[in-house]
Structure formats: structure tokens, C-alpha cells
Design a binder for these strands. Structure first.
Lengths: 350, 350
DNA sequence: TCATAATTGAGGTGCGCACCTCAACGCAAG
DNA sequence: CTTGCGTTGAGGTGCGCACCTCAATTATGA
């Protein structure tokens, strides 16, 4: 039989009350008692029964995803995944919710975060652009006892908070490798388009992309980043101009998660250049474009996995538990038309 | 407050005992009572507290992975992941173990499976080659009340059992797309090597691979599959001969998870042909070869994810629970040197 | 009609742990 | 010596549910 706290108390030669004090890090425990309990835990292989802990604590965890307001399809996907997690975790006394706030003004974001406290929220997963104000606000959040996860966002990573998401330099490098090899032996230019280069993720992807193109594909030249600022007319204009100036463009790399705007601009403008197209993130748009062979590859990070991972981390931190590190690593996925698996590939009922 | 069984009983106008009978599918419940409980569940939004269920049942789940005996590095990785899961699930009253048996004789496998019963094992995840005997044994296992997961193996999927693993046709197609595009405009032959083509997975991968090469890369010709049978001398011999007969070989596709043998044979033989190499599964060998740029791409399925998914499924089936389908889909990963992330990419401590 | 079976309710116990109270003890400073 | 504080133990309660027993009631069939 598996040892219980009662067995532990007996093995450690102390009372249940002391075992309880040690296990839950309550005050008024002598070093001697703490040590003898710790030793007994090792000796008899005691493991807390999480079900019993949850039941006895009878605590409801509250986690919030703080996301940008935006019409981005990827963001919509994220929100759908949060809703999915919310549903799935309802049984586990875990309330998950998504909040959308404008991210353009760092002060506003910081103020929002300052309004969150430990007595209303156990953890928050924040997807916000890099800025000193936000960093400070996050640090103070942590100090207030709220578990913070930096969620898919380009903060310089805080020491005191976990990060969920891919290494954007590596993601850019992967895009570069795919683009370079897919282009083949042809010489030419690569057009690089972003919504904005203000975000740290964009910069890192760009750096990763260039590092590979420069090192491994010297016959290709990647052009300066075009920024659409989410403006359709502007996108049309700068892309048209760039294509005219660079008729030897052989590939396009879209850094941002929103690829629809620049790509439709390109497809409208372009004559019949056989462009290799690499974009980021799986969305209905990118999925369809992959199927139509108008995008060659998509570099993606699974939003469902990211959401679940963030929740697992916030939960584990709240309980002072360890977690399986390998499970929390978000993979840099390479999606082609061929490995775009829809729904469940197998499975059945019993 | 969240409704409990007591609230449910009250809302349904029945006793706790009847609620218990309905929830746990015990006999002696009238249709009327069952219906009124079901209606009340919907009405008050009752959700069972899993922690309380686990605690009250106080049941230990026993799951076994049945794997082949083999020196394959991928298999070693799988076993390590099972061990990891075993450790992580110790707290959750879930005993996970791995058994290795020879898979060469289907009768032997079937006999082994016949020796497993519901009173010793709640679920098994079986990785065994396709054969009628094994299929029958699996069906009977299910009938005996054991939850069965077909694990990464090429059974024609049973109706009554779940499957964990990738679609091998799609995996082969992905390999074909990568190989074809990486080769570029050059004409030539593609050497295809497998340990054996007897396994259904190999056949499916081959079919997927050919479907893409034939349709999208008519300037490439994929040669008949070479089978090493796991014999080093044989591998050397047939590969050497094939390379001599086909000096215009531009790419190599290794179907099996064990790529070391054929690839070292090729690297020993080959003069200085710039071969594009695509293999399957992430192993220390394939990892190293990717880093050295001797393999261009690896098509992989994450063994850790597969193991965790199998356990989640067996557990959910044992509890008659639903599961998040999207979480159980094993992705067809494309690994390049650039997205080979090691350990944890982020994270920290609080 | 009565016998039999099916259905229902009341009530209890225990799963392993968290959390609380209160009394008792030892120790050191005043 | 007393006062006060840190430490320890005994014991109780409750979390939400599963599982059991035993009567009481209702339906069913002969």
C-alpha cells in the first residue's frame, strides 16, 4: 500500500500535525523535526496524493490570459483554444478566462496589470509587446504572489516568470532554411514583410532568417523589411513598389502571424513569378493557401499546446509542484500541404 | 458555489443513492429516475469533481506499454519516455510500465496478449506489426474489458481501440515533398531504404512518398525499396551496388526509424555526391547527423507526446471520460538543423 | 390475490489530506 | 522564580464522492 501522511508521521517519529506543518510549509517547525520528516519521506517513498490535496483544499484556481485586441486570425484561434481549455478544466476547479486589452500603450498595459492582485487571480499569462513599463508591472505582479507566464510574447525573459512559446530566432532560421532550400539554385531577392518591426519577436525572426540566408544561401539577398502597419492600402503600395524595383524576387517571407494582407497584395500585383512563400502561424487563411499551393510552408507554434502548457505551468507554480519540462517545450512546426492533418487522424470509441 | 451530488439529488427530486446509481451506471434505476437526474445535471450544470472521485475510488490504474525487443535508438527513446511518464504519474495512482517482447512471431504476440486480463491490467498500449492473430488478440483483450491503444503501429485500425501515432501515408508524403523540393531542379534517382517492407507503416510511408514524387517531381525517380533486414553486411552490399548502378542518385529516403545502418553504408560508399537525405524519427544519431548537415531533414513524431497521449487515452477510457481530441493528435514534425531545439527553451523558477 | 422482483431512500463509512483549536511542553530572558 | 515564546501533539471537522447495507415502497406476473 502506498504510504499516507499517517505512515509518514509514524516513520518520522512525529505527529500528524507536525507532518502537516512541514508539508505545507507552515511556521513553528524546528529544524530537527523538518529534517526527520524530509528523511522519512525519502526513506518510505512518500508521495502526496494530489487528489486528496485538491479535495481538502477545495480551492478554485483562477487564471487569466491577457491578450491583445486585434482582428488577427491567429489571435482568434488562441481565444478559441482558451475557451476550449476553460471548458476542459471546468471539472478541475480551474477557471480560465481570456481578456483582451489594447497593447499599443505600454502605460495602459502596465496599469491594467497593476490592477490584478493575488486575491482575485492566481496566475496570468500575458502576451504583450516588449517594454520597460510592462516588464516592471510583471515583476510587481510576481511580487504580489501572482504566477506570471510570458505568453508567446517577445519580452526579454524575466527571471521570475516562465515563458511559453518558441525561440523566435530559431523560428526565423527555420523559415530561412526552408525558403532557401525551396528556392533552389535560382539567384534573386527575398522580400520580407512584417506588420511592424517594433516587436521583439519580429526582430528576432528577422535576425534568425538573415543568419541562415547569409550563411547558407549567398546567391539570395533578403531585402529590408517592409512594414504594413496593418494598413491595407499601405501594404498594397509598398509591396507593389518593391516588386517593381526587384523583378528578380524569388521568395517572400512574412514574419507576422497575419499573412493575409501582404500576401493578397502580392498575389494581386505579381505577374506570374514563381514565388516561394513562407509565412508564420496556422490560420484558416494560411491553411487554405497551403492547400492551394500559394504558400509553400508555414512555420507554426501550436496555439492549443501553448494554452495548455501555460495553464499547466501556472497550476504547477501555484501548487509549488515540479513539471515535466519536455512537455512544455513548444515546438517549431513546419507545415506543408502534406502534413496539414485535420481533426483527429485516428481514434474511435470503446 | 459549485453544485455537488447533494445539490443534484435535491434538484432531481431523488435521493443521493439514486444519483449515485445513475452517475456510476449501477443497475436498478428506472428510466424516469435516470431521466430526471440527467435533466437536473443539465439544468444546474453539475460536473463531477474528479479529485473526489479519484479519492473515493482509491483505485490504482495499471497501464502497460507492449513494445518490441530491439536495439533501435528510437525504441530506447520510447522506453525512456515511458519511464518518465511512470515517474510523473506515480503521484496520480497510475502505474505505468513497459514490456518488451519479440514481435517476429504473431502467434507469440497473440499468446502474450491473451495472458493479459482486466484484473491485472486496466489498459495496454501495443506496438506490434500488423497481423490477423494480433488483431484477434486485441479484439479479445478489449472484450475482456482492457482498454487498448494501438501505439505507433501499423495495424489496420480496430474499431474498438484508439490509435496513437501519425498517419504514415502523410508522413511519407511529407518526406517526399521535402526531398523533392530540397533536391531542386536536378534530375535523378531517389534511393529508398527500409529495414523491411513487411510492416504496414513502411508500405504506407512508401506509398505516400511515391504519390508526391510522381505527382510533383516528375524529373525524379524513386528506386525500388532496399531492405536491410537489420543486417549490416547486407545493407553495405545492396547500397553499394545500387549506388554503382545509379550514379545519378540525388537523394536518399530512409523509411525506417533506424537510419544509422543504411546511412553509414552510404557515407562510406559514396564518393562526393551531394545527396539530399531524409530520414524518420529523432534519435541521437539523426540529431547528430542533422547538426553535421549529413541529414537534411527528419520526419518525426514526438515519442514523449505519444506516450503521454496513450496514457491519457487509457485513463480517460477507464473512467468513461471524454478527452480533448486536438491534444491527442500526434503531429508530423519536420526537423531541420535549425529547429532542433534542445532541452527547455525558456522557463525559470519562481 | 399473493408472491416475487424491481426500485428507492436513509444512513453510514472511508478515501487522504488541509486546516483549525487547544493544551502541554521546553527554553531563554528578565 | 515567572513570563513569554517557540514548538509539539492530540483530536476534530470537512472536502465530494463511492460504495455498502437494510429497510420500505412500488411494479410485475402468475
Amino acid at each position: 500500500m502506498r504510504p499516507t501522511t499517517r505512515d509518514l508521521a509514524e516513520a518520522a517519529g512525529v505527529s500528524l500535525a507536525t507532518v502537516d506543518r512541514v508539508l505545507n510549509e507552515r511556521p513553528n517547525v524546528s529544524n530537527k523535526a523538518a529534517k526527520s520528516v524530509a528523511e522519512a519521506i525519502e526513506r518510505i517513498g512518500f508521495v502526496r496524493n494530489p487528489a486528496a490535496v485538491v479535495l481538502a483544499r477545495n480551492k478554485t484556481y483562477r487564471f487569466r490570459f491577457v491578450l491583445p485586441t486585434s482582428g488577427d486570425q491567429y489571435l482568434a484561434e488562441l481565444i478559441a483554444r482558451v475557451a476550449e481549455a476553460k471548458e476542459a478544466l471546468r471539472a478541475d476547479s480551474t477557471e480560465v478566462e481570456a481578456a483582451q486589452i489594447p497593447m499599443s500603450d505600454p502605460h495602459h498595459v502596465a496599469k491594467y496589470l497593476a490592477g490584478i492582485d493575488h486575491d482575485m487571480m492566481d496566475g496570468v499569462a500575458v502576451m504583450a509587446p516588449e517594454s520597460p513599463q510592462v516588464r516592471d508591472a510583471l515583476v510587481r505582479l510576481v511580487e504580489r504572489g501572482v504566477k506570471v507566464v510570458q505568453f508567446l510574447s517577445g519580452q526579454e525573459h524575466l527571471e521570475s516568470a516562465d515563458y511559453v512559446g518558441v525561440d523566435n530566432f530559431a523560428a526565423g532560421a527555420t523559415a530561412g532554411k526552408i525558403a532557401g532550400r525551396f528556392v533552389g539554385a535560382r539567384r534573386g531577392k527575398i522580400m520580407v514583410v512584417a506588420e511592424t518591426m517594433m516587436a521583439l519577436d519580429s526582430i528576432q525572426r528577422r535576425l534568425g532568417f538573415d543568419s541562415i540566408i547569409n550563411a547558407q544561401f549567398p546567391h539570395l539577398e533578403s531585402l529590408p523589411s517592409l512594414e504594413t502597419y496593418g494598413d491595407e492600402k499601405r501594404a498594397d503600395l509598398i509591396i507593389q513598389r518593391t516588386l517593381q524595383h526587384n523583378p528578380d524576387t524569388v521568395a517572400v517571407y512574412v514574419l507576422s502571424s497575419e499573412a493575409r494582407m501582404p500576401l493578397t497584395a502580392i498575389w494581386n500585383t505579381q505577374g506570374s513569378l514563381p514565388l516561394t512563400v513562407v509565412a508564420h502561424e496556422r490560420t484558416p487563411f494560411s491553411e487554405q493557401a497551403l492547400m492551394d499551393e500559394r504558400i509553400d510552408a508555414v512555420i507554426a507554434q501550436d496555439p492549443g499546446h501553448a494554452v495548455r502548457s501555460a495553464v499547466r505551468i501556472m497550476r504547477a507554480r501555484s501548487d509549488h509542484r515540479e513539471l515535466v519540462a519536455s512537455q512544455e517545450r513548444i515546438r517549431i512546426e513546419v507545415l506543408l500541404k502534406e502534413n496539414l492533418q485535420f481533426d483527429c487522424s485516428g481514434g474511435s470509441r470503446t
